[in-house]
Amino acid sequence: MQDTVREDDILLEVRNISLSFGGVTALENISFDIRRGEVRAIIGPNGAGKSSMLNVINGFYHPQEGEIWFDGKLRHHMKPHQVARLGIARTFQNIALFKGMSTLDNLMTGRLINMHANLFSQVAWIGPAQREEIEHRQKVEEIIDFLKIQSIRKTPVGKLPYGMQKRVELGRALAAESKLLLLDEPMAGMNLEEKEDMCRFVLDVNEQFGTTIALIEHDMGVVMDISNRVVVLDYGKKLADSSPDEVRNNPEVIDAYLGVSHD
């Protein structure tokens, strides 16, 4: 199946990634790819190295070994903000919103990588700076409409309930209009209704905007429903990489989740 995929269908590929902190190995020789336009799930028990994997893709951790290919090019050592400019956006497991700012400002901050007005026009707030501000405001308003968060536009995000904060965080990642969207447990801690909403948003983003999505999620029902392909990590190693159905029936995966002893 892998063979039928054309080279340029692959948006991101990690090859033989190994990451360790001091003596502790977090990831060991991991390789997988993410194709354009797909929803890719990364699953695994706690401590499997899922978030570390996202951090590597983000450029927040730098693996000791391995290569990352993005958009057909080998990526060299990069800082996270440079990676963001390449077109990778992300949300976080524990909400990492800018608590002192309003929803609107959080989303506008998400668009910073697309803004360029220089210091002097910023100082005067006329000409390019204001034009740019309005142009981006329109984009952000579209996202606000899409996520149905009009009513909390000017509320400081610190005051919002948990589910709403998750939604705003998704909005902030969307605002970057990236090629690849990394979602770290977007539905963690949500009730059923909120989860359904979030699933809908994720699928809509994928279908309407054509954004490629990689997500970490613990809720197997969700993963099976919305993802095209699943990669399973356990103790920093890759356990499986296939379609949701195959993963579900893979005995090794079942063992990993049910905690059969590793010896």
């Binding site: 983000n58 903000h81 990676v83 800018f98 700012m101 910073l112």
Partner: peptide
């Protein structure tokens, strides 16, 4: 906005491109 992003959560700010 980039200042406030750094103030509120510097790691997240960097990851979204500040």
């Amino acid at each position: 906005r980039s200042w406030m992003a750094i103030r509120d959560m510097d790691i997240a700010a960097e990851i979204i491109g500040v």
